[in-house]
């Protein structure tokens, strides 16, 4: 059972790590919408004059949408995670969700392809995807490419195997604060 002291440790941990938002749960459209509204106001309160709040918000929306695109459809595993941290030099967005092990190689391949590209090649790939036939698969790829372009490709990922069927997929984006 969670004790008061544990809760305080969570708070201390979140403060120390500059975690602005931490959420776990089922990310359906309604939850996402209210969560985003809350985060939008939080970002506005930071009173940035450079528009970084909007960039962070945009990448955040796309990251959350990626959760539902790649989550295993098994409802038991529908719990996902979102972290938004603000350091001195950058914002960090991390999403985590369950994926089926059988889907991991294809996802890894797609991520590795995007991660090694520079800004011009990313834009080229974005264009190719935009002009290609419309399928769910394609638009999912488009999301990752879009995040890569907007963050100047500061993407990392990891897969933590959970059991024979599923892994926990972590996806991280950093956004520099100074221009």
């Amino acid at each position: 059972m969670t004790q008061v002291s544990t809760a305080y440790e969570v708070y201390q941990f979140m403060s120390a790590k500059n975690i602005l938002v931490a959420f776990t749960g089922h990310f359906d459209h309604l939850v996402t919408t209210s969560l985003l509204r809350n985060i939008k106001n939080k970002l506005k309160d930071l009173q940035s004059i450079t528009g970084i709040d909007k960039k962070v918000y945009n990448i955040l929306v796309e990251s959350i949408e990626n959760i539902s695109k790649y989550s295993s459809k098994n409802t038991k595993h529908n719990i996902a995670m979102l972290l938004l941290c603000k350091g001195e030099k950058n914002f960090t967005i991390i999403t985590g969700n369950h994926v089926l092990n059988k889907d991991v190689p294809a996802l890894k391949e797609r991520l590795d392809k995007v991660i090694k590209l520079g800004q011009e090649d990313l834009k080229k790939l974005y264009r190719e995807q935009m002009l290609s036939k419309r399928t769910d698969e394609n638009s999912a790829g488009l999301g990752i490419i879009d995040i890569a372009i907007k963050s100047k490709n500061q993407i990392k990922y990891d897969f933590k195997p959970l059991n024979e069927q599923t892994s926990f997929y972590l996806f991280q984006t950093e956004i520099n604060i100074q221009k």
Partner: peptide, 13 residues
């Protein structure tokens, strides 16, 4: 537009 997601992008196109 303040923001559009990647799925909307294709429709805007």
């Amino acid at each position: 537009l303040d923001y559009f997601n990647s799925t909307s992008a294709k429709h805007i196109m």
